[in-house]
Nucleic acid binder design. Structure first.
Lengths: 132, 132
DNA sequence: CTGAATCCTATGCGATACTG
DNA sequence: CAGTATCGCATAGGATTCAG
């Protein structure tokens, strides 16, 4: 049974349960990390702990507001650990929890797909634009 | 080298290239399928071709507007094929292209992670709420 | 340095009504 | 049946300023 068939079967199961946002793990996950920044920050932290300002530099086009907000959400969900050093000036280090690290595998799968098939997607979009 | 380290290394590479939205495959993918419906519709189609109204029933809380819009985007990106039967009344069937099917693997990885670790995430959120 | 607070704009997305 | 068109709100999220 290939991945496609398996996925189709799983979808049937969720559907039978009403695809409820609260109960369905997949809907829940998508609500969590289906935003513009979550996956990117998890990837940024995969290499090791980073400080707030280092993360801000690593992802140039994120605002401080969204950086704080996204990290908080990831922390609440148990994917990221926030370590505050009570120095002056304060120093805050973020790192992946074991749960966060366990997410690296699936995320890497997505990343690999993106890199492998990026050219095909660009090509498809070019074709579509030409047809229009 | 585990997935976490690999992912960290890849992020360094993207960072070196400026994490450009146009050029970075990952940013591009996230812009595409990082919305509320794309991944869900791809999963819904993984089991086989479905008609427009069947998809609308499969995902109860999607509006016709978003269903159309999301399917169009997936079609333009080459992940979904749209087959129009010029009958009366018209019948339109959507299916995954080979490119779309190739995405089932990575997507299944994400789904499996969600199902496996859902309980842990819920637990973490409960702890965070209690602390607050 | 690491945020919190406030303000403001863009737009995602649902609801509704209409068409071929 | 399978959309399209229009309206309108709720929210995402950037810019800026203040604080510990």
């Amino acid at each position: 049974m290939d991945a496609c068939t398996t996925l189709g079967a799983k979808f049937e199961d969720w559907q039978a349960l009403g695809l409820d946002e609260e109960r369905c793990p997949v809907r829940n996950l998508l609500d969590q990390i289906g935003d513009r920044w979550s996956m990117l920050l998890l990837a940024a932290l995969a290499g090791g702990p980073k400080r707030f300002s280092a993360l801000a530099r690593a992802v140039p086009d994120i605002s401080k507001r969204m950086l704080t907000q996204t990290l908080r959400m990831l922390e609440v969900s148990g994917l990221v650990h926030r370590d505050v050093q009570p120095t002056v000036p304060p120093s805050v280090t973020y790192s992946l929890t074991p749960l966060g690290r366990s997410f690296a595998g699936p995320l890497l799968g997505l990343v690999d797909w993106a890199e492998t098939h990026f050219a095909a997607v660009v090509e498809a979009r070019a074709q579509a634009k030409k047809a229009a």
